[in-house]
Amino acid sequence: MLGSMFWFFEYRFTILPVLLTIPVFFLLGWLIPCMMYDNAAKCSVVEQLRNTQ
């Protein structure tokens, strides 16, 4: 759409940035839940229920 509006605009999709960010997102998607689970596992179930209210 922008290409038809501006004569000087040229759109080229490059796959390299996508390929570079996919491993980072997979790592974050694995690391953050593991860290949260380890943090929650330190407390007892009663303490976790008490903190939710």
Score class of each variant (00 low, 15 high):
residue 37 Y to H: 09
residue 38 D to H: 13
residue 5 M to T: 07
residue 50 R to P: 01
residue 24 V to K: 06
residue 10 E to G: 05
residue 16 L to I: 15
residue 40 A to T: 09
residue 30 W to Q: 06
residue 36 M to E: 07
residue 36 M to A: 07
residue 47 E to Q: 11
residue 13 F to W: 10
residue 34 C to T: 10
residue 18 V to P: 01
residue 9 F to S: 03
residue 9 F to Q: 04
residue 21 T to C: 14
residue 18 V to S: 11
residue 1 M to Q: 04
residue 47 E to G: 02
residue 31 L to S: 04
residue 52 T to E: 13
residue 32 I to Y: 01
residue 8 F to G: 01
residue 12 R to V: 13
residue 23 P to N: 06
residue 13 F to K: 04
residue 38 D to R: 13
residue 52 T to K: 11
residue 33 P to W: 00
residue 16 L to N: 08
residue 20 L to P: 00
residue 11 Y to R: 08
residue 39 N to K: 15
residue 6 F to T: 00
residue 31 L to W: 11
residue 4 S to I: 04
residue 23 P to M: 08
residue 33 P to E: 00
residue 14 T to V: 10
residue 30 W to K: 04
residue 34 C to Q: 15
residue 3 G to H: 02
residue 36 M to T: 08
residue 34 C to E: 14
residue 23 P to K: 03
residue 31 L to Q: 06
residue 6 F to A: 02
residue 42 K to E: 08
residue 21 T to M: 15
residue 52 T to D: 06
residue 4 S to G: 03
residue 40 A to W: 07
residue 50 R to E: 12
residue 31 L to R: 05
residue 15 I to H: 03
residue 48 Q to S: 14
residue 2 L to W: 08
residue 36 M to R: 08
residue 12 R to H: 15
residue 46 V to G: 07
residue 24 V to T: 13
residue 52 T to F: 11
residue 40 A to P: 01
residue 44 S to F: 04
residue 49 L to D: 06
residue 13 F to D: 08
residue 5 M to I: 12
residue 11 Y to L: 11
residue 30 W to S: 06
residue 33 P to H: 02
residue 4 S to Q: 12
residue 32 I to G: 00
residue 3 G to M: 05
residue 43 C to A: 14
residue 45 V to L: 15
residue 19 L to E: 06
residue 24 V to M: 11
residue 18 V to G: 06
residue 23 P to W: 02
residue 4 S to T: 06
residue 38 D to F: 11
residue 22 I to G: 01
residue 44 S to A: 04
residue 14 T to Q: 14
residue 13 F to C: 03
residue 7 W to R: 15
residue 11 Y to M: 12
residue 23 P to A: 03
residue 16 L to Y: 13
residue 21 T to S: 10
residue 51 N to K: 09
residue 34 C to H: 14
residue 49 L to K: 09
residue 28 L to Y: 03
residue 31 L to C: 03
residue 6 F to Q: 04
residue 8 F to N: 10
residue 33 P to V: 00
residue 16 L to D: 10
residue 2 L to Y: 05
residue 46 V to Q: 13
residue 30 W to G: 00
residue 18 V to W: 13
residue 18 V to L: 11
residue 1 M to K: 07
residue 46 V to M: 06
residue 39 N to I: 09
residue 50 R to S: 09
residue 33 P to Y: 01
residue 11 Y to N: 08
residue 19 L to W: 03
residue 22 I to Q: 10
residue 8 F to D: 02
residue 24 V to Q: 02
residue 21 T to V: 15
residue 12 R to E: 15
residue 51 N to I: 10
residue 10 E to N: 15
residue 7 W to E: 12
residue 47 E to P: 00
residue 17 P to V: 05
residue 13 F to R: 11
residue 41 A to I: 05
residue 47 E to R: 03
residue 4 S to K: 05
residue 12 R to A: 11
residue 40 A to F: 10
residue 14 T to G: 07
residue 10 E to H: 15
residue 7 W to P: 09
residue 8 F to I: 01
residue 5 M to F: 05
residue 41 A to R: 09
residue 6 F to P: 00
residue 25 F to H: 09
residue 47 E to H: 06
residue 2 L to S: 10
residue 28 L to D: 02
residue 19 L to N: 05
residue 11 Y to H: 09
residue 36 M to G: 01
residue 35 M to V: 15
residue 33 P to Q: 01
residue 35 M to F: 12
residue 24 V to F: 12
residue 39 N to V: 09
residue 12 R to N: 15
residue 49 L to E: 12
residue 16 L to F: 07
residue 19 L to R: 08
residue 13 F to Q: 09
residue 48 Q to D: 02
residue 4 S to Y: 03
residue 21 T to E: 12
residue 39 N to E: 13
residue 15 I to L: 15
residue 9 F to K: 04
residue 3 G to E: 14
